[in-house]
Nucleic acid binder design. Structure first.
Lengths: 228, 228
DNA sequence: CGCCTCAGTTAGAAGCTATAACGACTGTAG
DNA sequence: CTACAGTCGTTATAGCTTCTAACTGAGGCG
């Protein structure tokens, strides 16, 4: 006997070896978010119910308030995770080539959106009236925009300058210090709005009843953006 | 004395002279919808509360169920009214010229959207998961699409044919019997998606923090669509 | 004039978010 | 090994929501 005791837990609560309470806490938080995502995927964010999540986890409703201050708090964290996931998808799409191929980025966006439509709508759909994005999501959003800008450099540098480019050159605020050419900025902006236009209407079901495949329209718009 | 009695109400319940009960009913219904619109304009459709509306009208909650079968029923009617309003705005925009000027239609859409952002989002925003549009809204949607198609005829007939046009020529389903050229169809589609792309992101507040005026971007996209 | 329909009421069920108070467990310190 | 303390999960409760059922009152219509 006197079997070797399981490694005595380090008393130091280093970030990679947290004390058991904290470890359990983060695990439960993750499980809550997992159930929340499943619920959002089926019924949308507006139908997210803390009570239902607790019941699925074998707990009572108020227990969840130990882990999230409120329902909005949970949703905010899900929004942040969604942004993070999109940024990761963009990183993965632009990892292969040097400087993020534009078409790859476009198709990555659509694949990411179709993978979980409600996750896309959670970010780009109808906003909650009183909701204000926290600082970290604006950071991730800027990260995403930067990748899009990078991808637009090779396809928009030698584009003809439009009146809007001239206007944009004098009215830029975000894109701090990047100072991409106005044509590139313009191209990134319209890429964003056009891709979102097709995706948003597709996910909302506004193309049902029309026989064409939205993927074809999306690809055509992407091609138009790529070739100028 | 024997003053002339006020015109005796016609006993016949003709559509333009309904019996008092029906008249009162439609009036109360209209008042309910008016309060609903005011509530939606301030807090969005998700925050619409029948109880609050009833309280504002000096009634108790269940009384409203005499006029609308359910909350979804009320929202459905508001959606239909919103579509009707947009169709009217399009009609007004295309009334002056013969055949609906494209730019006028585009600016009419933006003006209509900014007039009441939540009304626009009620139609084109994140859909309720289980919601299915009734038949009359698809009719109005088709009416709107027809006006857009008409406006696209003069600006897209002599456009160069793209691969997507060829695809679209073989995969059209709505647009029953209209049989517009594929280029016109294509132009109408991308007009829709591009205008919606800018409007949707603008109304959702995704351009806040960027210094440019979304109206300029919208105008630029519209110009691009008009000139090809 | 009397009936009868319909508007609006109260009462109540089932659901939700969220707070407060309490018991119990557990990790840690002495 | 024991005692403390912090946290987890519970029940109870308030207040909100949609929506149904049953009752009352008043108005229109024959």
């Amino acid at each position: 006997m006197n079997a070797p005791r399981p490694q005595k837990p380090e008393a130091s609560d280093s970030p990679e070896n947290p004390p058991p309470r904290a470890r359990y806490r983060t695990q439960v938080r993750a499980e809550i978010k997992e159930h929340a995502w499943r619920q959002i995927a089926t019924a949308g964010a507006s139908a997210l119910s803390l009570n239902a999540i607790a019941k699925q986890m074998g707990m009572t409703g108020p227990a969840l308030y130990r882990y999230f201050a409120s329902r909005d708090d949970l949703i905010t964290e899900l929004v942040t995770d969604a942004y993070r996931s999109l940024a990761d998808a963009f990183h993965a799409a632009s990892a292969g080539t040097q400087g993020a191929d534009f078409a790859d980025l476009g198709h990555a966006l659509r694949a990411w959106a179709l993978e979980d439509p409600h996750r896309y709508l959670l970010i780009y759909g109808t906003p909650v009236p009183g909701y204000h994005a926290p600082a970290d999501v604006t950071l991730i959003a800027a990260e995403i925009m930067t990748m899009l800008l990078d991808a637009c450099v090779p396809v928009a540098t030698d584009a003809e300058s439009t009146p809007f480019d001239a206007y944009l050159a004098g009215n830029r605020a975000w894109d701090g210090g990047y100072s991409a050419p106005a044509q590139v900025l313009h191209r990134a902006l319209v890429s964003w709005t056009r891709m979102h236009g097709v995706l948003s209407l597709e996910l909302a079901g506004h193309f049902t009843g029309m026989a064409f495949d939205p993927a074809e329209l999306y690809a055509a718009e992407l091609d138009r953006l790529r070739t100028g």
